[in-house]
C-alpha cells in the first residue's frame, strides 16, 4: 500500500473518531429538537459536564468526601456520568425550558446559551482551561491494535464501536419499537397523544433527559482521548450545529450519518490541506445551503 493511501486511511480513522462524537451530539440535538422544538445550545456544555463528571469521579470525589482511596474509574463513570447529566438536563427542562414552549423557539436557544455560559464559566473557575488529562483510562483498553494499514489505539477503536452501537440502538428504539412510536406520535400531534391518556409533559422531560444523557455519554467517551477542558463543549457545539444544518434535523438517521461522514471528511482534509481542516465542515454547510437548503436528509417546509 502506498504511503498516501495509508495516510488517508489513518486520518480517516482519526476523523471517524471525531465523527462519532459529532454523530452522538447531533443525534441528541435532533431527538430534543423533534420533541421540544428547542435547539439546545447547552449541548456542548453538557458534553463537557459528562467529561468532568468522569474526571471528578476518578480524581476529586474521594478527597472531597474524605475517602482518599476512592477512585471511580472509567466503567462506573460510563454509567454514572450520563445519568448525572441526564438528570441535570431534566432539571433544566422542568424548572426553566418548560415555561418557554409557548414562545418563539428562539427563546429556548437563548436560555440554553445562558446555561452553557454559566456551566463553562463555573468549570473555568475551578479547572485549568488548557485541559486536565483523564487519568483513569481502563487497563484493558490500553495499547494498540494493528489494523493492517496502521496501528490504532485500542481505546479509540472501542470509542468508535461503542458510539456506533449507541447510535444504532437509539435509532432502533425510536424507529422500531412501541416506545419510539409513542415518541414519534408525540412529535406529530402531542395534543391527541395526550388525549389518549399518555403523559406528554413527562415524556418531554424524559426525552430531554435522554438527549442530554447522550451528550454526557459522549463526554465520558471523549475524556480519555482529548484532555478534559471547560472549553471542550464550546469548541464542538458550533461544529455540531453545522453538522445538524447539513444533515437536517428532521431525521435520526440523517443526524448519525452526517456526523460520521463529516468527521471522516474533516480527517481527510488534514491530509490534503491541513489549514482548512478547521473550516471544511462550515464550507460544506455553505455548499449544502446552496444546493439543498433543507439539509441532505431534511424535509423541506
Amino acid at each position: 500500500m502506498d504511503v498516501m493511501m495509508r495516510l488517508i486511511l489513518a486520518q480517516g480513522m482519526l476523523g471517524l473518531n471525531n465523527g462519532v462524537f459529532y454523530a452522538m451530539l447531533s443525534l441528541g440535538l435532533a431527538v430534543i429538537f423533534g420533541m421540544l422544538n428547542v435547539v439546545n445550545f447547552a449541548h456542548g456544555a453538557l458534553y463537557m459536564l459528562g467529561a468532568f463528571v468522569a474526571l471528578i469521579l476518578s480524581s476529586y470525589l474521594g478527597p472531597w468526601i474524605g475517602l482518599d482511596a476512592l477512585h471511580l474509574g472509567f466503567w462506573p463513570a460510563l454509567i454514572i456520568a450520563p445519568i448525572v447529566v441526564g438528570c441535570f438536563g431534566m432539571l433544566i427542562e422542568r424548572t426553566m425550558l418548560r415555561w418557554l414552549y409557548k414562545f418563539d423557539p428562539i427563546y429556548g436557544l437563548l436560555l440554553t446559551f445562558g446555561i452553557a455560559l454559566v456551566l463553562q464559566g463555573l468549570f473555568s473557575n475551578y479547572f485549568n482551561s488548557a485541559g486536565t488529562p483523564y487519568p483513569a483510562q481502563p487497563e484493558s483498553l490500553r495499547g494498540v491494535v494493528h489494523l493492517g494499514f496502521m496501528v490504532f489505539p485500542k481505546y479509540r477503536l472501542f470509542a468508535i464501536l461503542f458510539s456506533i452501537v449507541v447510535c444504532f440502538l437509539t435509532w432502533f428504539v425510536i424507529e422500531r419499537t412501541r416506545l419510539g412510536a409513542t415518541l414519534r406520535a408525540g412529535v406529530e400531534n402531542p395534543e391527541l397523544v395526550q388525549a389518549f391518556g399518555i403523559n406528554v409533559p413527562r415524556m418531554i422531560t424524559l426525552t430531554f433527559g435522554f438527549g442530554t444523557g447522550l451528550a454526557g455519554l459522549a463526554g465520558v467517551l471523549a475524556a480519555p482521548i482529548y484532555s478534559v477542558s471547560p472549553l471542550m463543549g464550546a469548541n464542538i457545539i458550533i461544529v455540531v450545529f453545522a453538522v445538524v444544518v447539513i444533515g437536517g434535523m428532521g431525521s435520526i438517521l440523517g443526524a448519525i450519518t452526517a456526523g460520521l461522514a463529516l468527521g471522516l471528511i474533516e480527517g481527510m482534509t488534514k491530509v490534503f490541506y491541513a489549514p482548512a481542516a478547521n473550516t471544511v465542515i462550515f464550507f460544506l454547510m455553505v455548499i449544502v445551503l446552496l444546493i439543498r437548503p433543507a439539509g441532505l436528509f431534511g424535509r423541506q417546509n
Binding site: 412501541r178 412510536a181 409513542t182 414519534r184 406520535a185 412529535v187 406529530e188 400531534n189 397523544v193 389518549f196 391518556g197 399518555i198
Partner: peptide, 14 residues
C-alpha cells in the same frame, strides 16, 4: 399519525 404505520397507530393509545 403519518409517521407511524397502521399497526403502530392501532397500538398507540394505552
Amino acid at each position: 399519525f403519518a409517521s407511524l404505520s397502521v399497526e403502530e397507530n392501532l397500538m398507540l393509545p394505552p
